[in-house]
């Protein structure tokens, strides 16, 4: 029964993803100034939000881990960083593709872009640390401290680049969005949010299972040793 429900949910998610693509490629009107390339934004902006969300989860998990060394909090932090990075790379790759067709350059030293790039770099370092640094308790603590140090950093980078490029216009999306566009945007956001939750739960379970496997292995070798 549970398995059936799970499969039904997956099917529903696939249909929703298909619907989101239909909205992006068929339903919405083409933006008059930027042309079709503006359609990147229906997935790019939600991806940016989900990237932030993943890293916020990592931050919360890291604070929890530093506080009471709970393995749950650590798994939460690791899963958040994994998913946040996937969406972070999506943002970092699709953004320049849009910029090239709109601004004529791949990259601008603008506060939002720069702080995003730094955020992805910091959490990529976190990922490398957790992946290759060895799974000891000290490495987990190192990762947690890194995530906690990373959070105020984003604010500093933002301020610094704003000071440096004080004349740059703030918004890139534009305020007065067409109602059809807004509808499509919010539906895409909702669908991707559900995808995020699904992937996050799966990832969290995988990490917890791997911990359980490690514990079982240790117990087995102790039992055998006796």
């Amino acid at each position: 029964m549970k398995n059936k429900l799970y499969l039904a949910g997956l099917a529903l998610l696939s249909v929703a993803l298909f619907l989101a693509h239909w909205l992006v490629f068929v339903y919405v009107p083409t933006e008059p100034i930027m042309g079709v390339v503006q359609r990147i934004f229906y997935f790019h902006v939600p991806a940016a939000w989900l990237c932030y969300l993943g890293f916020i989860i990592t931050f919360i998990g890291s604070v929890g881990y530093i506080w009471n060394r709970s393995p749950r909090a650590d798994a939460l932090a690791l899963a958040g960083a994994d998913i946040g990075l996937v969406f972070g790379w999506i943002v970092m790759l699709t953004g320049p593709l849009w910029a090239r067709a709109t601004w004529g350059v791949w990259w601008k030293w603008e506060p939002r872009l720069t702080s995003m790039a730094l955020l992805v770099l910091i959490f990529a370092a976190y990922w490398v640390l957790r992946r290759y640094g060895g799974g000891t308790e000290g490495v987990r603590r190192f990762g947690a401290v890194l995530a906690i140090f990373g959070a105020p950093n984003i604010a500093f980078v933002h301020v610094a680049v704003k000071k440096w490029r004080g004349d740059h216009p703030g918004g890139v999306v534009g305020g007065g969005l067409d109602p059809d566009m807004r509808l499509a945007f919010f539906i895409c956001l909702a669908v991707l949010q559900v995808l995020f939750i699904y992937l996050f739960i799966e990832r969290y379970r995988v990490i917890r299972d791997e911990e359980a496997i490690g514990a079982l292995r240790r117990r087995l070798s102790r039992l055998k040793g006796r």
């Binding site: 370092a125 490398v128 640390l129 290759y132 640094g133 060895g134 000891t136 308790e137 000290g138 490495v139 603590r141 190192f142 401290v145 890194l146 140090f149």
Partner: peptide, 14 residues
């Protein structure tokens, strides 16, 4: 962070 890194592998690169 250097203190934390003492427990990690590849600390000098990380």
């Amino acid at each position: 962070l250097a203190v934390m890194a003492t427990s990690a592998r590849f600390a000098e690169v990380l």
